[in-house]
Design a protein around this nucleic acid. Structure first.
Lengths: 283, 283
DNA sequence: AAAATATATGTAATAAAATTACATAATAAA
DNA sequence: TTTATTATGTAATTTTATTACATATATTTT
């Protein structure tokens, strides 16, 4: 865990003066990394040794060391949540903004990721008789990607990208099936209804979607991806990338859960590719 | 530009002793951020004031300030290129590794991104009569995602995910068409041949693929995505995420190039979604 | 090529910052 | 209430950073 988060952590018991110091640091960390012990002591209204003791509490050898670590933790802290692309951005800054936004989305998603939910989801997936991925519109490709990945680890999986197939399949599910509904907003009516049907059939319904959305309420397990309110027109939908990474997590977890006997299967798949490819050596 | 890169920058004229200092810093920056002036002076075999002068040269107010900035620049520097997932990783560390790898891939891709190529690609796409996205296997969903995004900015676009359709379409292209071939390895024989056919027809062939791959050689414009050699079995294919972000860049660039009259079109699309969704307000 | 000027580097003094030792106050336990 | 424990601050000390100045090195001009 990064230093900044450690300071935030309320479970870390701090003395009265230490709290004051923490307060000031969290309030304006940018200023603190350029301050001296004396300055921080004055700002927090404590003595200089108290500041140093504070640093030691967080495993730093001293104040300079603390500053350095704080600076690092600050640099990895969330960048500008979303930097909307502007009509008169240069190509270069546009690229920068898009990459930045993607990094930010990933960080948010990781920070918000709920271990128990992921655990539950992988358990369900690992035991499933069959796995269904449902996505519409922009989430269609995501569902397809999931299908591809689960297929590679030898799982009975299908992705459906249209309402009809989704609904037809849902109506015939059993408690041994798992449905994963992927939706950016979690407000697409058709998908919500499908989720409801699937749940009624007793299937496990996993949602990769926006927290507290109508879809989320229909799901038995929710993997939350924060949706930054539809900001600008040109803002790319970075959240679908978060969805993909979450699917990476699920696939990997399931593969690991199945253990080493499956690496053999993966190897076989890799070999089957060989003849469709130009080998690096012969090229 | 980050401090570390500034120090690397050879155009920055440095004096003899300054060079020695730079050398040491670049060699082991992690150690430097925990050193004192004296220590760094000894390591670089210069006097202490020389070290401080060095700091001033890079716009720092002093050595502590320099350390802090170096620490920040170090934190944003490329993380471990790929952290392979291990069979006995906890769920938590596995998640961490996957996210880290994704960040790293993105950073690599951004660093390697070639502005002129992207410029050329967007020009071609903006003027194209029709745009084709070709992808096989894991790149299928990527092609589909591209289709979806370009469709949203009202472009005549189709994605083909199977060899037959790809080849059929390629044979009938004209110089006003643009094909985008997406391939992780750039060694899938079928796709390489398709690219060749398309080029023969005079179409512009853009490749989103591994540099210097056979596919890359068949393309008129290449957007390179480094493929970290197929490391571990469980390593997720983070590069497809890099592909997606590159497509974000292309779409956004094309949309911007078309100018404001197109935002109107985007608005219309957004409105057309309204009735398929549960509104946030009424929920 | 020598002198003059500018630039770079180091030595030693000085200032600033961080840390420690110790004393005192606050708090909790007996 | 007393005693032990913990927290905090004052003042001394040490370490670290910086500056002023002198010397050396390189560059330009005559």
């Amino acid at each position: 865990m990064t230093l900044l988060n450690q300071i935030r952590e309320p479970s870390f018991k701090l003395s009265k003066s230490a709290k004051k110091v923490a307060e000031v640091i969290l309030q304006n960390p940018d200023e603190v990394i350029h301050s001296s012990v004396a300055k921080l002591a004055v700002l927090s209204k404590v003595s200089e040794p108290s500041v140093i003791r504070f640093c030691h509490k967080f495993g730093c050898t001293g104040f300079p060391d603390f500053k350095v670590q704080l600076a690092q933790s600050l640099a990895t802290a969330m960048p500008q949540i979303t930097r909307d692309v502007d009509e008169n951005d240069s190509l270069e800054t546009m690229i920068e903004k898009i990459f930045d936004s993607t990094h930010a989305t990933l960080q948010l998603t990781q920070a918000a990721s709920d271990l128990p939910s992921i655990e539950k989801a992988t358990d369900a997936l690992a035991q499933a008789n069959s796995i269904l991925f449902f996505g519409l519109g922009a989430s269609g490709p995501v569902a397809l990607d999931a299908q591809h990945k689960f297929f590679r680890i030898n799982t009975p999986v299908i992705a459906h990208l249209d309402i009809l197939n989704q609904r037809m399949t849902s109506a015939n599910l059993t408690s041994r099936d798992v449905v994963v509904c992927i939706s950016y907003t979690g407000r697409t009516i058709a998908l919500i209804e499908t989720a409801r049907i699937a749940k009624k059939c007793g299937a496990e319904v996993i949602g990769i979607t926006s927290p507290n959305s109508p879809l989320a309420k229909e799901c038995s397990i929710v993997l939350e991806v924060e949706t930054p309110e539809d900001t600008d027109m040109y803002t790319p939908m970075t959240s679908r990338i978060a969805h993909l990474v979450l699917i990476d997590v699920l696939v990997t977890a399931v593969a690991l859960k199945r253990g080493p006997q499956f690496s053999e299967h993966l190897l076989r798949i890799k070999e089957s590719f060989a003849e469709t490819r130009i080998n690096k050596a012969e090229f």
